[in-house]
Amino acid sequence: MLIKHVRANDPSSSEITPRSVFADRRRLLKAAAAAGVWALAPAAASAAKPARGEPIPNVVKWPKSLPEMPTAYDLATTYNNFYEFGFDKDDPARHSSKFKPRPWTVKVEGHAEKTGTFDLDDLIKPHQLEERVYRFRCVEAWSMVVPWVGVPLGDVLKKFGPTAKAKYVAFQTVLRPEEMPGQRLALLKWPYVEGLRLDEAMHPLALLTVGMYGELLPNQNGAPLRLMLPWKYGFKSIKSIVRIAFVENQPPTSWNIATPSEYGFYSNVNPRVDHPRWTQATERRLGDPFFSPRRPTPMFNGYADEVAHLYAGMDLAKLY
């Protein structure tokens, strides 16, 4: 006869965690840590579910994606800096429904063998779409982890045959004040412009992005075409691109025009170069518990091994 002796430190059956709770332990721990009884609040269960976008077929998974869990879709699509749709974080999600991301063309200009106006699909189609999970770090010291869908920017740019005079690439966002209420206020100089050195634009991490979470980009996240430069602060990753120009001199960039002392041309994520408004040494990851320490920000947002060589010999405190 088998007799089970219950020892003092054996768990009683009432203490054994149900499988469902165990499987959901991370979320539950976070919720519980968020503040005791507040974990029981209806808010924890009934977050509004945003409408989802159109799924993108034929996407391959990039092997070097971050192993981290992506930020929740509803956080990444309701907390956005896209001043064309308003200046508060929830404005882009609320005021972008009138925006029409299709049909869409991109004008390619400047020092290249092939220039002209191209349909968005014709730009993307020759390339294999990849899903890449990247860290995203805003200059305002918050961050997220997002599975983007796109093609390497360099592969697209090479097809135009940039000439020896092409040293930089300039990008421009669409100007449609009738669909973009933020553009009716001249707080930034519209249209939004950004730029990269040609070697930065050709870097294999630079992603010309058409989707996120396996779906077409929502309007508030820069539909239908944006950059994703994971080693730079978010504002460098320009949204709703209508113009790409190969140029000889460093092109103007919107935030640098607005406040040159705060935003430089390079704007690489750099925990050692402090910003007058925000510490860049640490960040707040969206979705982390309310009461939790901030996370340390790594150099080049964790992509130093891949991109540090681009800036060898440069004084990054001066060329911020």
Binding site: W38, A41, P42, A43, A44, S46, A47, A48, D74, L75, A76, T78, Y79, K89, D90, W142, R284, L286, G287, F290
Partner: peptide, 13 residues
């Protein structure tokens, strides 16, 4: 608001 809807994506802010 915290109890019923939550404080959004960046609750600390």
């Amino acid at each position: 608001k915290g109890w019923t809807a939550g404080f959004g994506a960046h609750p600390q802010e």
